[in-house]
Amino acid sequence: MNTLRYLWLAGSLLPLFAWAAGSGSSGGYVHIPAGTLVSALKFEDVNGAVRIDAFQMMRRPVTNAEFAAFVGTRPAWQRGHVKPVFAGPDYLGHWATPTQVGTAVQGAQPVTRVSWFAATAYCEAQGGRLPLWLEWEYVAASDRLRRDARDDPAWRERILAWYAQPSSKVLPPAGSGEANRYGLRDLHGLVWEWTEDYSALLVTADNRNQGDAETNRFCGAGALSINDRDNYAVLMRVAMLSSLEGSNTTMNLGFRCVKGAR
């Protein structure tokens, strides 16, 4: 009789445990419902809103500890082993050894100095992929209460403040930021994040040539221009991603994975 009671108790508390495990700073994926997005970027081929299919996204960026576990099982992605064509010379340079994070760096911090190829391999090992730019933009428009906070100057100001701070500050643990409406943390204010289609952000190297589509350079419709000039946060993210090659790493660039429709 008692056993049943205990089982019943445990069972009723199970959702609580699941919630505790999935929320806060721990990992796991969150379901993102389908919706529409008016991108800050002006795409020549789409007018107005873009449809975003439902998908699942990691609650927070991948951490040093998680990535260390990954490279532990995949020697090809270890520092020193990885081919230069897939990751630059500074790849995981902040770790003590090719497989161990060490003590100078925290396991809970978001992993940085990872290339697009490495991030892609990690996500594929999870059965997932890197998010598309539009998927990222869709969820990143949200703040704690609103699905789309982009028109709020205060929101933009807060995001911009991160760019104003120098890199010398110690990175806080991944997932320590405030959750947005979807339950995602640290889309802003922690590290830049790779997207699957980082190389789809076709902007001219001289970003002032808005309207000069350089059709010869970019075939078809030409270079992207910015719809929402006041949204500096997006502008800067686009500028950053468009400056990178797949094998590049920087100390401010990490990633998170998604699963599902694309």
Partner: peptide, 17 residues
């Protein structure tokens, strides 16, 4: 990525690249 080519698929099946 290996070749340094950048591209975007457009809605109508064309590509910017």
């Amino acid at each position: 990525g290996l070749l340094g080519v950048r591209y975007r698929a457009l809605a109508d099946g064309e590509f910017n690249h």
